[in-house]
Every structure is written in C-alpha cells, then in structure tokens.
C-alpha cells in the first residue's frame, strides 16, 4: 500500500510538472514555426489515446500487461492532467463552432463522469463492506425474491398458530411493499439509516397489536427485514458503482470519435 502510494505520488508529481511546463511554454510562446495550438492539441490527443488504452486493457485481463491498480492510477492521473492540457489548448473561451461545442460538451461529460466515478470508487467500497458480505450483483434480485418468499412463509405459519391474520394483514398493507424489490437506494448510497428507521417504526406499530403467539413470528420477520436491508444496501451501492461507467464509457467513446473528426478538420482547414 505504501509502495503504491509512493508510485501514485510520483505519477502525480510528474503529471503536474508536465502540465505546468506545458502551460509555461504556452504562456511564453514566441512566434515560431511550431503552432502552439497544434502542439498542445497533439499532446492532448496523445493523452486521450493513453486514457483510451485503459479501456482496452480492461477488456484483456488475461494478458500480462501489469497490475490493474497501476493502470487505474495512471488512468486517473492522466485524466486529471488532460483537464489542464485541455485548458491550455482551448483557453477559457467557449468554442464558437457547433462541432467544437459538441466536442467540448463531450469532454466535460467524460471528465465529470470520470471524476464522479473516481470519487464513488473511493467512498462506496468501504460502505459496501460495512453492509455485510458482498453479494453477486446479478443474483441480488433473486435473493430478494427468496427473502420475500421466506417472509410470506412466516406469515402463513403465524396465521396458522394464532388463528387470525393480524400480522398477515399488516404485512400486506406495509411490509409487502418493502419486500417487493430493493428499496431505499438513496439512503443506502448516502450511508443513511432511513430503511432501518422505516422498519423499526412499522414493526413497533404492529407489535402492540399482536398476541403472544404471534410475536415470535414478528421477530422472524424482523430478522428477514434486516437481511433485506443489507441486501438493498449492496444492490444500491453496486448499482451506482456500475452506473457511472454507463455515462463515462459511452461519453468517452463518443468523445474519441469527435476528437478524431476535430483533428482531421483542423488539419484539412489549416490552409
């Protein structure tokens, strides 16, 4: 971990020095045969290409191309450095042409989604670990269905033992909604206790109406709610950890296509 931190620090220093040097060169540029916009544009293009290679690397995990964590570190550092290179290349003015505006919007979308994703990757895994053993994302809906079935079995058993359907009726009016599918996504993502409070309130409300025979079944139902809550947290967090890539990757791919067009056009229309 410490070695990785040193490596990351080194990457950040190199990237910051490179961007500062590029900015200083651009600021003190004197009339020469090298056009500053062309040079900074090609540097930015090289950085974009390096960022795109990360996506290729992810698709080829079987190849011995180095550790994924190193690739991710490089991707993040180069991505942030690309913001500086973009500012040096474009300046502060908003592009005037339709194509350049589209390119700028796509760049902003890629950067924004990338930064957001990096922040989520830093925060959510710890929250995911706190919510319990990690479940396979694709199996969570099935696991929720199993919990729902277990809850309904508990209700049938409670009705049989008590001879009336107080608990079943209450479940149908309140808890059935909860067990229907993953709930309280936002609360789980932000680390809130909304689901827990909701459960406690609902279970406490019905507890005083139940007979002594029914209360053990309510305790079983409460345990199922606790499992459901952990499952919901897993689902919400894992969904978010996947969702940002559905913005970042398509935006990045579209940006690459637009950047290629931009590169072609600025060269064709240079004379």
């Amino acid at each position: 971990m410490r070695a990785m931190s040193r490596r990351a620090a080194g990457l950040w220093i190199v990237a910051a020095a490179g961007i500062v040097a590029l900015g200083a060169w651009r600021a003190t540029w004197r009339a020469s045969t090298i056009d500053p916009d062309f040079l900074t544009g090609w540097i930015l293009a090289a950085m974009v290409a390096a960022l795109a290679i990360y996506g290729v690397r992810r698709r080829l995990p079987m190849l011995p191309l180095g550790r994924a964590s190193v690739w991710l570190s490089v991707h993040v550092v180069v991505g942030v450095a690309a913001i500086g290179a973009y500012a040096i290349h474009v300046g502060t003015a908003w592009p005037a042409g339709a194509a350049d505006r589209a390119l700028a919007l796509l760049f902003l979308a890629v950067i924004a989604s990338g930064v957001a994703g990096h922040v989520l990757q830093a925060i959510l895994p710890a929250r995911l670990a706190r919510s319990g053993p990690e479940l396979i994302y694709e199996r969570i809906p099935a696991e929720v269905a199993k919990l729902r079935a277990a809850a309904e079995d508990a209700l049938v058993e409670a009705a049989g033992a008590a001879g009336h359907e107080t608990l079943s009726s209450y479940y149908a009016q309140t808890l059935a909604w909860y067990f229907e599918r993953p709930r309280f996504a936002l609360s789980h993502v932000f680390g809130g206790h909304g689901a827990e409070a909701w459960e406690r309130q609902r279970l406490a409300a019905v507890e005083k109406l139940l007979s002594a025979d029914e209360r053990p079944h309510l305790a079983a139902l409460a345990e199922l709610c606790r499992h459901k809550r952990a499952m919901d947290a897993q689902y919400a967090i894992q969904t978010l950890l996947r969702a940002w890539t559905f913005v970042h990757v398509p935006a990045a791919t579209a940006f690459l296509a637009m950047a290629a067009w931009h590169t072609l056009i600025v060269h064709v229309y240079a004379g």
Binding site: T33, I34, D35, V266, H267, Y269, G271
Partner: peptide
Amino acid sequence: TALRTGGPHA
C-alpha cells in the same frame, strides 16, 4: 501540409 509545416501556416 499542415502536419509537415507544424501548423496552419498555409
């Protein structure tokens, strides 16, 4: 030409 001359000099 633009690549060879290093910019939009043309």
